[in-house]
Design a protein around this nucleic acid. Structure first.
Lengths: 215, 215
DNA sequence: TAGTCTATCTATAATTC
DNA sequence: TGAATTATAGATAGACT
């Protein structure tokens, strides 16, 4: 039958609504990514499903964009605030986006031939990813992603050593916050997504990573 | 001539890039609004143009969704742990991978059947890392990295609990003392977005969700 | 910079496997 | 559930205002 026109109103059928949510959320994130790439825009998207699961997309990160947006009225941020503004995404976001990436990667794995073909193309041409055909991005990007994860792990480790020092600064930021936009409390009351995700049902791969989370 | 296909990469022509940004931002907000209506989702989107102009979409509001995402509080969660667990390393690269994988996925769709032959050729001649094909190794690596991250996350959380408990309580107390609450300061010093938007033209759909603003 | 127009391209509703 | 398939509705590149 192909696509039928639908009225833009709440979908009554729950199952259809869930399917639609999943597809359109993914489509929305894709559109956002294209906007980032095509136009050099910074984008943050947060989506809560009706069930309360959270999904996010961020470039360069949800936090950096959100902070820039929410605190733009305090141009003279103190140092602690500025530093926090440029800190990376949160670990819960890592879990989420990582899992999304794994979904993509896994889908490709199941489709085997695509990845293998990409590998061959890459091997044959030895071009840099930005010079070669788009298809060659595949394996290259998977490898880069793997390296990225590794680097992230290293950063986490290093970060752990910095945290004690930062704690003092956070306190200072909270104390100084009364004069401008307040940053410190932003992170003070949060719960790691991975600790309250909806359950194994939402963990497509058994890495112990949370996928969605409920509130 | 109608619409031409474009490659998902940065648009070099500045004017074309700006036009594309404007159109696609509007399209993105429309998609978001449909997601809200169709599926009952809550969505917040923040977009910064390369020039630094901010636009946002939110249902029921950017603030409420962002707050829900950023300020999830748990009575069972110790503040230091929450703070620590979310103070992740820089993950901009991960975001980048996400968007690039999106492009990849799309590119792969178009590659077609001839890739299978190429894949077989490669399979016959290429040396694999370990026992598996290169592309599968990548996935295995990802899995290991994922587990490593999970372990580190737990380590970080534990260390956070040990090292930052005191500092977090201090700063939380400081914030509460200044504002009467932890979350209030986040939005206290900024104008509501709806009140400083650039004009009606930034309100794509009239259910009180979207707006843009300049500054 | 934002609308308009139009030919195409893309996303996705409906359906099947 | 989830992954294809199909056919169409919707988005948008390019040119122009």
């Amino acid at each position: 039958m192909g696509r039928q026109k639908i009225e833009i109103k709440r979908i009554q059928n729950e199952e259809a609504r869930q399917v639609c949510f999943s597809k359109r959320r993914s489509g929305l994130f894709k559109k956002a990514s294209e906007l980032c790439i095509l136009c050099g825009a910074d984008v943050a998207i947060i989506v809560f499903s009706p069930a309360g699961k959270a999904y996010s997309f961020g470039h360069p990160s949800v936090e950096s964009v959100a902070e820039r947006f929410l605190h733009r009225s305090s141009p003279n941020q103190n140092r602690a605030q500025a530093q926090q503004a440029h800190r990376g995404p949160l670990l819960g976001e890592l879990n989420q986006q990582y899992t999304e990436l794994m979904s993509l990667a896994e889908a490709k794995k199941k489709r085997g031939e695509d990845l293998k073909a990409a590998a061959k193309a890459r091997r044959d041409t030895c071009q840099y990813w930005f010079d070669g055909p788009l298809e060659e991005l595949g394996l290259q990007e998977l490898e880069r992603f793997a390296m990225g994860i590794n680097e992230i792990r290293n950063q986490v480790t290093r970060r752990a050593d910095e945290l004690l020092k930062e704690a003092a600064m956070v306190s200072a930021a909270a104390a100084a916050a009364q004069t401008g936009g307040v940053m410190a409390p932003l992170f003070m009351n949060r719960q790691p997504a991975a600790f309250d995700h909806g359950g194994a049902r939402f963990v497509p791969y058994d890495f112990g990573l949370g996928y969605g989370h409920r509130f």
